[in-house]
Amino acid sequence: MSSLELRLPDIVVVTGTASGLGLEVARRLLQCNCKVVGVDMAPSALESDPSYRQVTGSIADTSTWNKVGDLLDAETSATLGLVTCAAILDVGTVPEATPQLIERTMAVNVTGTALGMAMIVPRMEAKGGGAIVAVASVNATLAEQQLAIYNASKAAVRQLARTAALDHARRGIRINVLSPGPMMAGLFKRHVESATDSSRFLATRANRQPQGRILEASEVAQAALFLLSDGASALLGADVIADGGLTAGFDFRTGAEGASV
């Protein structure tokens, strides 16, 4: 079978490695012989791997990123990457969102992403470049009911990354956005569980997908690795939609509505 070989950074910082997309990205990187620094409030199942180092703490706290920076500084010859997977999602309308909930969502989803970039960009510049993948969402562009605060935070991540891509392009840093759709990971699973009828909710959402299923987090992780790799050298400030075709059209006709498909 033919294959394509792509070069990845020597060491990659991944946030949200305790579960979901962050866990899958880190796992796949380790399988590709990259070193990984994981950042999360909770332990990761990967901590037994000798190529994995865990920094436990909030990504919205500069002290957490100082610890990450210390680990990277010990890897003096390594090329660097960053994937910002950590995020929180609360289901509810705007009148239901307390100031505390809004601040917490923005702190993790937006401030955490910005602080990660602020820590790693100077180190990348000193090494002549690097690759950053900021994980946003299709919800950064398209609205979804009961997720106003989350959607707003992901729209902020998208523009944060695209602007930073322009700011640092001449220093060899390549920043892109990865926007997943629904995937069988923590945030979407919690949304499913919050539904009155979880089984019906999941079946309805899966039926909207052109492929008839919700993507696995491991599939989206592959897209993140591509953006990290030298195979994506032509992409800068791009927003790669990894949603299984959900947003390719305004609606997907299954045939149940009587349309000809």
Rank of each mutant, 00 (worst) to 15 (best):
L4K: 11
D10I: 01
V12D: 01
V13E: 05
V13F: 06
V14I: 05
G16Q: 01
A26Y: 04
R27T: 05
R27I: 04
Q31P: 01
Q31N: 13
N33L: 12
C34P: 02
K35F: 11
K35E: 13
G38D: 00
Y52T: 06
Y52P: 08
T56S: 12
T56Y: 08
T56W: 02
S58Y: 09
I59Y: 05
W65P: 04
N66D: 15
D70H: 14
A78H: 07
L80G: 00
A87F: 05
A87I: 05
L89M: 12
T93L: 12
E96Q: 07
A97V: 06
A97K: 08
E103N: 14
N109M: 13
V110K: 02
T111R: 13
A114N: 10
A114F: 15
G116L: 09
A118T: 14
M119R: 03
V121H: 01
E125P: 00
K127S: 13
G130F: 01
A131D: 14
I132K: 05
V133C: 02
A134R: 00
L142E: 15
A143H: 11
R162W: 04
R162M: 14
T163V: 13
A165W: 04
D167K: 07
H168R: 03
H168Y: 15
R170Q: 11
R170A: 12
I173E: 07
G181K: 04
M183P: 06
L187D: 09
L187S: 09
K189R: 13
F201H: 15
L202Y: 09
L202M: 10
A206H: 02
N207I: 09
Q211S: 14
G212H: 09
G212Y: 04
L215C: 08
Q222A: 15
L227G: 07
S229P: 01
D230S: 08
A232N: 08
A232G: 09
A234E: 12
L235Q: 07
L236I: 15
A242R: 03
G245I: 02
G249Q: 15
F252K: 11
R253W: 13
G255M: 09
A256Q: 13
A256P: 00
A256G: 09
G258A: 10
